[in-house]
Design a protein around this nucleic acid. Sequence first.
DNA 1: TCTGGGGTCCTAGGACCC
DNA 2: TCTGGGGTCCTAGGACCC
Length: 419
Amino acid sequence: MFALVDCNNFYVSCERVFRPDLNGQPVVVLSNNDGCAIARSNEAKALGIPMGAPAFEYEELFKKHQVKVFSANFALYGDMSQRVMQLLSEYCDEMEIYSIDEAFLNLQGFNDAQLADLGKILRRRILKCTGIPISIGIAPTKALAKIANRIAKKFPIETGSTHIINSEEKRIKALKWTKAEDVWGIGGAHAQRLKKIGVSNALQFTQLSDEYVRKQMSIVGLRLKHDLQGIPTLKIDEVKDKKNIATTRSFDGNFTELHQLEERVSNFAVSCAEKLRRQNDCCNTMMVFLHTNGHRDDLPQYSKNILIKLPFPTNSAIELSRFALDALGKIFKPGYHYKKAGVIVMDLSPDKHEQIKLFENRNPKHIPLMAAMDKMNARFGQQKLRLAKQASGRIWRMKQEQLSPGYTTRLSDIITVKS
DNA sequence: TCTGGGGTCCTAGGACCC
DNA sequence: TCTGGGGTCCTAGGACCC
């Protein structure tokens, strides 16, 4: 059996841990730049605020219903996530951290009685130790555990936020209840095609022929079908190192000058370099892109990306910044209002056994230099030590008007409890 | 005025190799 | 008229996830 543990309205729940006055209130958390709603409390969902709602379009509604609005505090959410995952890992030998707020547990070896209790135990423990409410779905396969979790979330009172699919009868009932487009792995495009042939729920999907599913949805869809039939097909994946690493941002406003973009792109490259060093990788290829604001049809549009094969693998901030700026120079065109840019590093290879190249090699002095830089920035704060090209953060501005304190990540923000 | 930021996997087709 | 039979690698595009 597998469990899928999912934190309820995770980012909102993180904010509520340190602001219990927000319980029962409509709360939303916005994306970077305070752009869109990326998390909503149940009360906010009930007001009709959809996922991805642009904040400016909903300003009136927020005001009218006194919705509490937060800027994304990813440092806080990442830290809270680690605490939840740490606790979960105590309950099973094998676990897959599927996203910042979800994990699959392999429950091999648990007997029926233990399974029946597990959900309640987990829920109580995580709530007590972190303040985060969770829902648990338990089933013979991962895809079914996903569905069980959905049921637990939808009917918290009836299920106690934990649901088990452990009989054929329950499986059929759950699949019948689940709309095709709500199945994990069936997105908008496939749901539409399925609707056309009269498939509207998960059960009907599992009754399609293997050949049809394979043809329309490739091997991915076929695996999903089998998993939903109760044949364990999807396995627990241990967390692997990333294959691509990206740092991209929209700007608060438009940039027209090359030097403005250079400062941002340099920062993105430095950030990618840090992430590479954290997983002990170098990159061999880099992509730099920029584009104008696609939502503005009154302005000329331009969008371009460029793929650079590096002459040698590296994770040096200095080298990656230089390559990124070279690349940027090749795709920048004056006369446009730029809204977004980014750096993506790919084709990663381990830091250790790097191949010596014939003509050009990474500067070996950068290795101790970067180690020192990481150490200093870890101790004195992000970007205390930076490249000149990264400038002072003058241009770098992200709209973050409702940012909560770094309750668990910054000493000065720790809350005081008077007793 | 304002509209996020990450990731993964699969497939088909083209270019190339012997 | 007829013109082999394997491969690999890369890329773009499409689909999906949170």
